[in-house]
Design a protein around this nucleic acid. Sequence first.
DNA 1: CGGTGTGAAAACCTTCACAGCG
DNA 2: CGCTGTGAAGGTTTTCACACCG
Lengths: 264, 264
Amino acid sequence: MATGRTHRPATRSRGIPEATVARLPLYLRALTALSERSVPTVSSEELAAAAGVNSAKLRKDFSYLGSYGTRGVGYDVEYLVYQISRELGLTQDWPVVIVGIGNLGAALAGYGGFASRGFRVAALIDADPAMTGKPVAGIPVQHSDDLEKIIEEDGVSIGVIATPAGVAQQVCDRLVAAGVTSILNFAPTVLSVPDGVDVRKVDLSIELQILAFHEQRKAGEESNAEAAAEAETAAAVAPPAPRGGTTGGSRKGPDGDVPAVMPA
Amino acid sequence: MATGRTHRPATRSRGIPEATVARLPLYLRALTALSERSVPTVSSEELAAAAGVNSAKLRKDFSYLGSYGTRGVGYDVEYLVYQISRELGLTQDWPVVIVGIGNLGAALAGYGGFASRGFRVAALIDADPAMTGKPVAGIPVQHSDDLEKIIEEDGVSIGVIATPAGVAQQVCDRLVAAGVTSILNFAPTVLSVPDGVDVRKVDLSIELQILAFHEQRKAGEESNAEAAAEAETAAAVAPPAPRGGTTGGSRKGPDGDVPAVMPA
DNA sequence: CGGTGTGAAAACCTTCACAGCG
DNA sequence: CGCTGTGAAGGTTTTCACACCG
């Protein structure tokens, strides 16, 4: 999920598993909250609860970073905040550009969580000349003609794409050519990038579809007559057959040909 | 990552692995694009490229749904679109409420990908009385006092939380109490929900932090004198020691005590 | 005693490679 | 022949359970 290109051996950078890296920000958030309440130490159990994971996993995760706990006591909150921040590279400042200042881009520009953790919105870029110069979240929008110049001058290595899907790949190509090596993509498209560039994507529609899948499952578990009826209806609404096959006979499920909604 | 609660045996609903479910929307998007270009069939290789995965994975994924391909030919595009839609539960309509109509909520309300795939914005809800009645993306905002009524009347089972973090848990509790069983959370907080309720989260700041981690790694690989210098500086800036330990001696990395930036 | 750190086992996911079918 | 569907192998992630230490 981290790469746009098809291949990439999940390079587990310097021994820290990718799954662990993905959880470090969660721990950091929980720790920051504790730090603000001046809690000095925390046990794996408590911190795990606050971060929404289980404690064994948390301890294993931390073990990849080093031995930062004290047996019988727990972890020093401030110390851990520092260690995780350092590991994530948040002790330095990351200038970020946001490309595509529509509704979403504007929302991202105004998002507080940005500045709070080492990220600085270096520029907002949009292709619409009418936007140029308009301040959004206090930052004047710049025209996309200047994209390369902006990236180079500010030494930006992280770009956020919030454009329509149709232009996302072009924008991505320009960002990469100008020196950006990490991209956060909000456009509903698969971006392809050269090796060495990381892409992460956020797609509302995909998340909703995953929820719908589980939701449907739940509905099926409750009533089953209804589920069967639904399958019937669905079949009547839009059952294009595979080319040349008989509609009835050739549909085979993994463990039989019952339409999909039996309870466990 | 799909659940808010700590425990849940990753129930692999009806045999389809969670990882596969998470990719079905990707396949569906690629297939829809092909369908619009009236492409009749597609091979696993082609479709995989369009979806940004490798073909073996795609074939394995499809094998959980059934045998929907034709050997020597490939997959019938229309037929697969239908089968995946059905599997994801997109042949029915899902009313969705969005709670918290700030910048982000408004952006979500206006997001086209919503309507396109079986999801319908049933209501926009905000706690600010000044917002009540104001149309956002063509839909009038309703006051949060009416949350329960709205959920029940429209039979909403999916809720999107785009409120500030501070009130997200309360909103979540109310949604769940009113009957919502799937939640998409944009607030940077861990939500806890009873069993049987699914939570998925989208967190910009977490994504950026993961990118920063890899970005830092890349920087470390290029120049190493610089990396060493950075570690030095960082240590000087904020090195709180674990309670009572000696600062120098007790920090141990997984495979030595070199500060973290050696190349592979 | 209480809680970390970690080998070992289990679960899960991806990739390989090829049998078998159209 | 070409491409799907899938056992088997390999890799990663999670979980268990307990030795060990403050």
